[in-house]
Design a protein around this nucleic acid. Sequence first.
DNA 1: AGAATTAATGCACTTCCGTTGCATACTTAA
DNA 2: TTAAGTATGCAACGGAAGTGCATTAATTCT
Lengths: 138, 138
Amino acid sequence: MAQIEDFLESKGVRPTAMRLLVFKYLADRQAAATLSDVEASFSKAERTTLYRTLKTFEENSIVHQIDDGTGISKYALCEEGCNCDLERHLHLHFHCNKCDETVCLTDYKIPPLNLPKGFIANDANMVLKGICDKCSQN
Amino acid sequence: MAQIEDFLESKGVRPTAMRLLVFKYLADRQAAATLSDVEASFSKAERTTLYRTLKTFEENSIVHQIDDGTGISKYALCEEGCNCDLERHLHLHFHCNKCDETVCLTDYKIPPLNLPKGFIANDANMVLKGICDKCSQN
DNA sequence: AGAATTAATGCACTTCCGTTGCATACTTAA
DNA sequence: TTAAGTATGCAACGGAAGTGCATTAATTCT
Ligand SMILES: [Mn+2]
Ligand SMILES: [Mn+2]
Ligand SMILES: [Zn+2]
Ligand SMILES: [Zn+2]
């Protein structure tokens, strides 16, 4: 927990009790979390506080927001040393239609593409949908 | 207009006046349209009717819904002979951060990818973000 | 044609998620 | 210890998607 504290501080985020808990919660998860997920795990805490915690994390490159096409924002910890702004760090996300979980495939980068003349991309989102590893082995 | 009528019928959709107009509206556009866009163009028509028109079109493979990450669903006509269910028909979408328009890059398909063991994809969404051709030439 | 059936439209209302305003509590720095 | 800055709690708002139901229009059947 002291490590988390140091980590948050290194990112310029004050390590409040709530923030430490939310960070730990995200670290202990394999799948990306929605605000509702977080909310459900901390019934004592306020929605808004958790919302702002996630936003703060996002602004300071502690988590990245994931749009998996469900219409609900999800959040997952960034990779170590990740700068979410740089295209080269962009990885795939996989949304399972069975368990409804979304995971980062951090080792699978979005492939570079040639675009039509005049189109200049500086960001990308790629989500694959289907059956995840957990669900496919049953 | 008679052609549109025949086309809708060939897709199993009854060609009502409203549907003909909405189809024409989409056909005359280059960029994908939100429900609000359609609404704004037909101030006399009801939101719900337009909403259901788009849904009907989508269910009958006349349009496809696009999730470009803005959080607002957009719709564009399907390519001729398109079966939206088949992965091979999936194409890229490009969202311009300047003019805020999203266009189909129908000739640019989502590249096939090797996924980690156990992951089985049957659908995909890929959106590139940046400056579109129109906006980059000014 | 006229009645019965089915489909489309209009209107009101709801739900869900994200977001903001503002008062209070807490923390840090002078 | 006082002042300034930051985080939290509570309430309310907003946009977009979606639903229920009555009304109107189009089809089908007799
Ligand atoms: Mn990720
Ligand atoms: Mn498209
Ligand atoms: Zn799964
Ligand atoms: Zn543009």
